[in-house]
Structure formats: structure tokens, C-alpha cells
Amino acid sequence: MNKSIRRFKQSTQAGFTLIELVVVIVILGILAATAIPRFIDMATQARTAKISAARGALQSAAALAHAQWVLTGSSAATVSMEGTGNVDIAFGYPSAAGILNAVNLSATDYSNVTTAGVVSFSEVPARANCFVTYTPATSLTVPPAIAQTTGGC
């Protein structure tokens, strides 16, 4: 009798019960159901951050070109920026054509369209209402306008 009890105890400890497996699967399902919406939201946040990064690059490029223009005597039609070549200047800031040279955003990450003197940058592939625009300066006292739209990111 003692040998059969020992054999019975050894055979029951061989694996997990069906109830234990079902509980683990249910817990994993609950975790997945709460995590998936967060990952979806992160994609939107990443696209918004990408457009914000482009806005920051535009602001920096415009400020650097303006500083170079001031250093050269505030009368040059173009300024030379390291790594980008000549940047066309209008009213002390990059023109619509000049900002394309000054900002130097990657064509694999961003596309640009110029319409009526305003340059729009969007991510590749483009999404509606997810872009940043650069409107060149209109006078020496009015700096360029840089605005971002992230409603469709």
C-alpha cells in the first residue's frame, strides 16, 4: 500500500492542471486588452512628436540663418550656412526657397509642398491635418510664422 501511494503522488506532480492553464490564459488576455490601446495611442503621439521635431528644426534653421544674416551686415540676399550651402534671404530670414536649403529635412521622412509662398512639411506617408507650415517674413519687423497642425496625426 505504501508503494502505491508514493507512485500516485509522483504521477500527480508531472504538470499543470487545466484550471491553472486557463487562469494564466485569462490573466494574459486581460493584460493584452489593457496594453493594446496604449500602443495604439503611442503611434499617434509618435507622429505628433515627429511633426513637433520638424517645427523645432524650422525654428532653429530660421534663427541660425537670421543670425548669419545679421553677422554679415544685414544686407545680403543669401547667407552661407555650413552643410547646406547658400540660403536665400527675404527680410532677414530664409525665403520659401531658402528654408528648404536651411532646414535640410530628410526626404525619406518628410515631404514638402510650396503653395503661394508658404512651405508645408508633412511626414511620409502624408496624413491629412498632420503638418507644419513655414510662412516667410513679410517685413523686417515681422519674423516668419511657423505653425503646426496635429489634428490628424
Score class of each variant (00 low, 15 high):
Met1Asn: 11
Met1Val: 15
Met1Arg: 10
Met1Ser: 11
Ser4Arg: 11
Ile5Ala: 14
Arg6Gly: 14
Arg6Leu: 15
Arg7Ile: 15
Gln10Ser: 15
Ser11His: 09
Ser11Trp: 08
Thr12Val: 10
Gln13Asn: 13
Gln13Ala: 15
Gly15Met: 10
Gly15Ala: 13
Phe16Cys: 05
Phe16Gln: 05
Phe16Leu: 13
Thr17Met: 12
Thr17Ala: 10
Ile19Arg: 12
Ile19Trp: 06
Glu20His: 03
Glu20Thr: 06
Leu21Pro: 07
Leu21Met: 12
Val23Thr: 04
Val24Asp: 00
Ile25Asn: 00
Ile25Thr: 01
Ile27Met: 11
Ile27Cys: 07
Ala32Asp: 02
Ala33Cys: 07
Thr34Val: 11
Ala35Lys: 00
Ala35Gln: 00
Ile36Pro: 02
Pro37Phe: 00
Arg38Asp: 00
Ile40Lys: 05
Ala43Gly: 10
Ala46Trp: 05
Ala46Cys: 05
Ala46Phe: 10
Ala46Pro: 02
Arg47Ile: 00
Thr48Cys: 02
Lys50Arg: 13
Ile51Lys: 08
Ile51Gln: 08
Ile51Glu: 07
Ser52Thr: 14
Ser52Trp: 08
Ala54Trp: 12
Arg55Asp: 07
Gly56His: 09
Gly56Cys: 12
Gln59His: 11
Gln59Gly: 10
Gln59Met: 08
Gln59Ile: 01
Ser60Val: 03
Ser60Pro: 07
Ser60Leu: 14
Ser60Gly: 11
Ala62Cys: 14
Leu64Asp: 14
His66Gln: 15
Gln68Pro: 15
Gln68Thr: 11
Gln68Arg: 14
Trp69Glu: 00
Val70Pro: 01
Thr72Pro: 02
Gly73Ser: 05
Gly73Ala: 06
Ser75Thr: 09
Ser75Ile: 09
Ala76Lys: 10
Ala76Glu: 08
Ser80His: 05
Met81His: 03
Glu82Lys: 12
Glu82Pro: 08
Thr84Cys: 12
Gly85Thr: 15
Gly85Lys: 09
Asn86Pro: 06
Asn86Val: 13
Val87Ala: 13
Val87Gly: 13
Asp88Asn: 14
Ile89Thr: 06
Ala90Ser: 15
Phe91Tyr: 15
Tyr93Gln: 03
Pro94Asn: 10
Pro94Leu: 08
Pro94Ser: 11
Ala96Lys: 07
Gly98Trp: 04
Asn101Leu: 07
Ala102Cys: 09
Ala102Asn: 09
Ala102Lys: 09
Ala102Glu: 04
Asn104Lys: 11
Ser106Gly: 03
Ala107His: 02
Ala107Leu: 07
Ala107Ser: 06
Thr108Pro: 00
Asn112Leu: 02
Asn112Asp: 07
Val113Phe: 01
Val113Asp: 03
Thr114Ala: 01
Thr115Met: 01
Ala116Pro: 05
Gly117Arg: 04
Gly117Trp: 01
Gly117Glu: 02
Ser120Pro: 01
Phe121Arg: 00
Glu123Ala: 06
Val124His: 06
Ala126Ser: 06
Ala126Trp: 02
Asn129Thr: 00
Cys130Met: 03
Phe131Gln: 14
Phe131Asn: 13
Val132Glu: 05
Val132Pro: 05
Thr133Ala: 09
Thr133Gln: 13
Pro136Tyr: 02
Ala137Trp: 09
Ser139Ile: 15
Ser139Met: 08
Thr141Ile: 12
Val142Ile: 14
Val142Lys: 13
Pro143Met: 04
Pro144Lys: 06
Pro144Asp: 10
Ile146Phe: 07
Ile146Asn: 08
Gln148Tyr: 04
Gln148Val: 03
Thr149Leu: 13
Thr149Ile: 01
Cys153Phe: 04
